[in-house]
Design a protein around this nucleic acid. Sequence first.
DNA 1: GACATAATGCAACTGAATTGCATAAAGGTC
DNA 2: GACCTTTATGCAATTCAGTTGCATTATGTC
Lengths: 158, 158
Amino acid sequence: MAHREDSTSLLKQKGLTPTPHRVMVLGILGNSPSPLSPQEIFATLQRSHPMNRVTLYRILDMLVAHGLVERIQSGDRAFRYGLNAQSPHAEHPHFYCSHCGSIQCVHADSIHVQVEDIQKTFPGLIQRMEIRLDGICKNCLRNHKGKKAGNERAAQKP
Amino acid sequence: MAHREDSTSLLKQKGLTPTPHRVMVLGILGNSPSPLSPQEIFATLQRSHPMNRVTLYRILDMLVAHGLVERIQSGDRAFRYGLNAQSPHAEHPHFYCSHCGSIQCVHADSIHVQVEDIQKTFPGLIQRMEIRLDGICKNCLRNHKGKKAGNERAAQKP
DNA sequence: GACATAATGCAACTGAATTGCATAAAGGTC
DNA sequence: GACCTTTATGCAATTCAGTTGCATTATGTC
Ligand SMILES: [Mn+2]
Ligand SMILES: [Mn+2]
Ligand SMILES: [Zn+2]
Ligand SMILES: [Zn+2]
């Protein structure tokens, strides 16, 4: 969990001026256990430190471009942003609940994808990998499984 | 590669009336080596069998709902659609070129993700998995790497 | 053929993100 | 501090992909 000072120094390390806006955004991401959508970040900001949503998008883009933040795709049409895991071994899948849209980090060691092996035979340059699991989250499973219909579209039979 | 008759019978198998539109869409997907965006499908259709784009979206949704077609997320904001691999073992990652936006199927056997293992400890219900590799495709690598700037945003340092 | 149901078309709308340009803040030089 | 350049933020309008509501047309059943 990154606190204000951490966020500031992280920004400085990357040669980015630690403006209040940037520090706030990075702090929110650092305090969240799971990646957040711009909307969620925006809502959190509104309460204490309102900013224009374009600014938020630009800050997120910049943080991603400098490797401080990771942008992942969820099952829906909005991206999620989370602090970038420093070590390449901390890569992990994310679970997307197609009912409520929530995202969770999944730390499982039964994931063995040898990108290097694929790279040997694949003609393009592989820079990144993303693994997503789709399904129904714990909460939605018990809150009787069909109350307020969410975005069920992503569920498809294999 | 599914031909007209194949598409028709596939639809019938699922109890769907094989209308010309549906047969065409399924045929296009069957003839493509890689998943296509609605835009690409639409453009292909325009030449021979124009249809309203809402109809296309509805047909794609239906095909996915009935398991004939798989909808995957690429690095950008548009979904891609491809014939659903019948056997669960045919699951494979997809490569997304962040420069030109093209998608390729990656058939590699160095992918070992035991969803069952994850399911043992994960409290939600896992229904599906999606693996995506991001990078620069063969073509974009050689066509001197910085001509018409594409959607470079997805590229982020690990 | 009359009727019910399913499929398609059309227009307007939505949500997420982007673009262009104006304004404000930060930094450097004298 | 005044002056200028660069960087950051705000605001309005726009794009892009997909969705919704409702009218119209096809398809099937008796
Ligand atoms: Mn995570
Ligand atoms: Mn494929
Ligand atoms: Zn849920
Ligand atoms: Zn490419």
